[in-house]
């Protein structure tokens, strides 16, 4: 499904990704862990096409099409979804209007018929309930005045409605209490159908107690330096990241599970 080969990318002339390789097959869940500043968020931004993230080399293909050549919206229509670490607030644009436009675009790209307003509303309400957000959030401006946890749940709600092929969750667990964490994890697990793939980017092992990964990768200094199965996450949790490359753990990676 996703093939990343020797991907290098920079932000403001600083090289962040330095030859990253990753292959994700249909139905797989990959966790990417690593210290702050390793390039975890950059990977999501580069794949989704954020302005200012310059690709310097390598390739990234989704189902055979070259992602890096496409506009952000075209990547989304190919089935790529990024759950943001810091979702943007957009007052004046309602969640409903936003999601309807996004779902319309996704359906059109898949060659499916557009939903009637009534059918869309029904699905939106369902998704809203699933992530335990009050229904009135649909009418509010996109993320306007939402708490950190509500924003994360809103991201998951969007994922549920868009039904992407590949979802990248960028630290969807940060700043969440245990109940919210379960909501996020349930959202992901409910979408695991043997075909849909996930890349779960996280700093801590905690989320992986609820979303069980097939593979765990350690990203450090722009490269994947170690890969393993779920047990690698536990190892990292116990030992931190310092042992990998003599990385000085300044960022509290060894903080115990809440």
């Amino acid at each position: 499904m996703l093939k990343i080969n020797q991907l290098s990318a920079s932000v403001e002339d600083k090289t962040i990704l330095k030859g990253l390789n990753l292959e994700v097959k249909p139905g797989e869940v990959h966790a990417i862990m690593g210290p702050n500043g390793a390039g975890k968020s950059t990977l999501g931004y580069v794949l989704s096409g954020r302005d200012g993230y310059e690709v310097e080399g390598g390739s990234a293909e989704l189902d055979g099409s070259d992602l890096l050549e496409l506009e952000p919206e075209e990547r989304a229509r190919k089935g790529l979804f990024l759950a943001f670490q810091y979702p943007v607030e957009i007052p004046g644009v309602s969640n409903m209007e936003f999601m309807k436009a996004a779902v319309d675009a996704a359906l059109e790209a898949r060659g499916e018929e557009a939903l009637s307003s009534a059918e869309f509303l029904k699905r939106a309400k369902q998704a809203c309930k699933q992530v335990q957000l009050p229904l009135e959030f649909l009418k509010r401006g996109v993320n306007e005045g939402f708490s950190g946890g509500e924003k994360k749940r809103n991201e998951i709600m969007q994922m549920l409605l868009l039904e992407p092929k590949l979802a990248i969750l960028d630290e969807s667990d940060s700043g969440l209490d245990i109940d919210a964490l379960k909501v996020v994890a349930d959202g992901v697990n409910s979408q695991r159908d043997g075909q849909r793939s996930f890349i779960v980017v996280t700093h801590y092992q905690r989320l992986l107690d609820y979303i069980e990964p097939d593979y765990v990768h350690v990203l450090s200094d722009g490269k994947i330096v170690k890969s393993g199965d779920a047990s690698l996450a536990k190892e990292l949790e116990a030992q931190g990241y310092a042992w990998l490359q003599g990385y000085e753990d300044k960022n509290g990676a060894e903080e115990p599970v809440a």
Binding site: P72, E73, R77, F84, A102
Partner: peptide, 9 residues
């Protein structure tokens, strides 16, 4: 970018 990343032109 946020809107575009959701497939909106």
């Amino acid at each position: 970018y946020y809107l575009q990343s959701r497939g909106i032109s």
